[in-house]
Design a binder for these strands. Structure first.
Lengths: 193, 193
DNA sequence: TGTACATCAGTGAACGCGCGTTCACTGATGTAC
DNA sequence: TGTACATCAGTGAACGCGCGTTCACTGATGTAC
């Protein structure tokens, strides 16, 4: 072999990470295979040594991006004391920082509607990631002695982010983020002891 | 003139309506100008007698689709007695029927993330429509003697629909719709008299 | 230890195709006389 | 009322371009001897 197994795996990961960021920032349809490979510093032809098709990359990149983001949120809230985790999660998700950096943010908010139109295989891996994300929300609630519907919370987070990004005026956009934060916090109750 | 003014306006409207439905069902990037014109029963070249560019069509079609959907929801809830309007609106929005027919449904849920990446002009008309939609939600709440944050409600509706459409399994998808309906109803309070 | 060979990640040109847009044109109709 | 002309919505072929994918190839390295 010309390159070691590690070398190929590393290149593969670089393609996945680059695609994950660009798909979120520019949309799946907005980013071509050749363009991704160029960002990685390689040429188009090499792509098919790593993936069977663009669709395979979409599935893997979106799944990886989602998992990485969820892991990031998990590390973030676990750095907070129990009792402050749920609010920290909500504030971090519905922040101007997240709104203005879709390339490193939530995959559902960035590509959810688009991915819903993709083949079943792609959607299946995506469904699993949504469940993992909802599980994290549930854990954050429980750590804070709160109870509520984590699926409803996930919906509010995603939808509010999409509205905040769609609205051109920054001040108006901020009021949507604020409304989303309020709505989520109002939807949970202190757990009966 | 070959055709009367009415004739051109009518053709223009047919293009707008067709594009609005197809953009929602297949995504803005997933539908070409030639394909829209074919759906209308015309050939590509004629397109530019009606629109300066595809982007102009995107702005007009999405704005029209959004306004039409909002008007439809308005007519629907006004057919209900005051006191049952908000719940009717929420149930209609978060229904399997709406989930399974994006081409005739909410433009934000279908194209929101995508349109956020479009030029300022397109986003501006879109922002206005969002405000009109939030206003309708507010009116439905007030008609029922409820108070709450209509922007937060809009976020929950949009995000829940995106999650429900992304999830491949129909039964699991239905639980997300249910959670969204619960979350919205729990977020409003009976108005103090 | 030194040499010949096999491997295969990555190259770069080419494929057919659909995209948004342009343009010379057609021909039915409204308008002017 | 009848005829000549101007208008312009719509035609259909062509434009350059980027798309996803294919393929003959290169050349550095691991492996066999």
């Amino acid at each position: 072999m010309r390159y070691s197994k590690e070398h190929k795996d590393e290149t593969h990961q670089r393609i996945v990470k680059t695609a994950g960021a660009r798909f979120r920032a520019e949309g799946v349809d907005g980013v071509g295979v050749a363009s991704v490979m160029q960002s990685v510093g390689l040429t188009v032809g090499g792509f098919y040594a790593h993936f069977g098709s663009k669709e395979d990359l979409v599935a893997e990149a979106c799944s990886d991006a989602f998992a990485t983001t969820t892991a990031g949120f998990r590390a973030f809230i676990e750095s907070k004391p129990a009792g402050r985790r749920f609010r920290a999660l909500v504030d971090a998700y519905l922040s101007p920082r997240h709104r203005d950096d879709p390339g490193n943010g939530c995959t559902v908010a960035a590509n959810g509607a688009e991915l819903a139109r993709h083949p079943t295989g792609t959607r299946a891996v995506f469904s699993e990631q949504i469940n993992a994300w909802v599980k994290l929300i549930t854990e954050a609630m429980h750590a804070d002695g709160l109870q509520g519907d984590a699926r409803g919370v996930a919906g509010t987070l995603v939808g509010t982010m999409i509205l905040a990004r769609a609205i051109a005026d920054p001040a108006l956009s901020e009021t949507y983020l604020q409304s989303g934060r309020n709505a989520v916090m109002a939807s949970v109750q202190r757990q009966a002891v």
